[in-house]
Nucleic acid binder design. Structure first.
Length: 117
DNA sequence: CTGGTGACCATTA
DNA sequence: TTAATGGCCACCA
């Protein structure tokens, strides 16, 4: 698989995140069929155009925090966009147990490390 | 080629 | 709870 194909899979996965929810880099990697390659997700997002339709702001790190340089323009925009969608921050992070998007892979009840609040 | 870096993460101590 | 470690891959010097 080419590097370009991986990037497109990553973007496709990010586009699936619903409004008002977040998910992690590692989770996107899994959905893109690239388990264990979370770093690639960050790299791919960094390559996006400024006016992209890909909802990159819905991707946070495993702690629920924004992984962009603190105080930077991009970080501020990410937080502003999330809050505009109703996502609430607790300090510098969002509670994943509450805001993480869980695609329907859950069989019957909660299947992942993100349970409902 | 080699080595370093990055919007990362799970594991281990 | 925080720190260190090893693994991952694309890109660049």
């Amino acid at each position: 698989m080419t590097a370009d194909a991986r990037r497109r899979r990553i973007y496709a996965a990010v586009r699936r995140i619903p409004r008002g929810r977040v998910t992690t880099y590692g989770r996107i990697a899994e959905l893109a069929g690239l388990r264990g390659q979370a770093r690639l997700v960050g790299y791919a997002l960094a390559a996006l155009e400024v006016d992209t339709a890909v909802p990159w702001h819905r991707v946070v790190n495993a702690r629920g925090a924004i992984s962009l340089p603190p105080g930077g323009h991009s970080a501020l925009m990410q937080r502003a966009r999330l809050e505009a969608e109703g996502v609430v921050f607790d300090g510098d992070r969002v509670a994943l147990e509450r805001w993480a998007w869980r695609p329907r892979t859950a069989r019957g009840r909660h299947a992942g490390r993100f349970a409902d609040a």
